[in-house]
Amino acid sequence: MTDFIKDPVVSLPDRMPEPVIPGDELFFTDEEKKQIETWVSRYPTADGAVMRVLWLAQEKFSFLPAEVVQLVANALDMPYAKVYGVATFYTQYFKEKKGKYVFDVCTCFSCQWCGGYDMLHYLEEKLRVHAGETTGDGLFTIQEAECLGACGSAPMLQITNGPYVHNLTREKIDALIDALREGNMPAFESVTLPQDEDELSGNRRTDVDKTTSSVTPPVSETVK
């Protein structure tokens, strides 16, 4: 578990950081600007689009250093402080550089009792970093996550705010890491409804590459 309770220190962000994105790369393309305009048009005020634009910026620059937050604020003509307050509120916006692949391992509630901690610890040992840290090669960051809404397929994790990996096992993690090292993001994995297994003898979707059926969760070793 993240040890904020044991070591409750809130650190000060760098107040006068050196920009990390080179000036000539710090802009939105015309296409991105058009996309932003479309988003803006869907809300009574431009501020409504800020979360989408922060997402766009994070996908483009891989995280949200100050100059990028400022770029977003300018794009929407919003006070920079307001955008910064928003960016720091949500956990999925990365305020600092993370690994290329960020594992959000759910250890919450259902996952806690179905081996979520086992998977977290296995990953920590395998990658030799603690939750909250990034591997030396900059490839992987491990984070402990709150419920990700996939409790029926616990234990599970999410990769870099993208695909979910359900019904984790050690073997599945091994394969996942190998694949990611090769640069292969796992495909969308559809969890079959148990009733569909009975009535449709399998997953109802024919357009997904990967499915996983209802699995009896493993017995948790870490917590009983």
């Binding site: 409750p8 809130v10 000060l12 962000p13 760098d14 107040r15 006068m16 950081p17 100050a66 100059e67 937050v69 400022q70 920079y80 402080a81 955008v83 910064y84 307050g85 720091t88 509120f89 949500y90 956990t91």
Partner: peptide
């Protein structure tokens, strides 16, 4: 967020 909240200027 939460108990970490405090007022600040944005960087820069």
């Amino acid at each position: 967020r939460g108990v970490r909240n405090y007022p600040m200027t944005p960087p820069g």
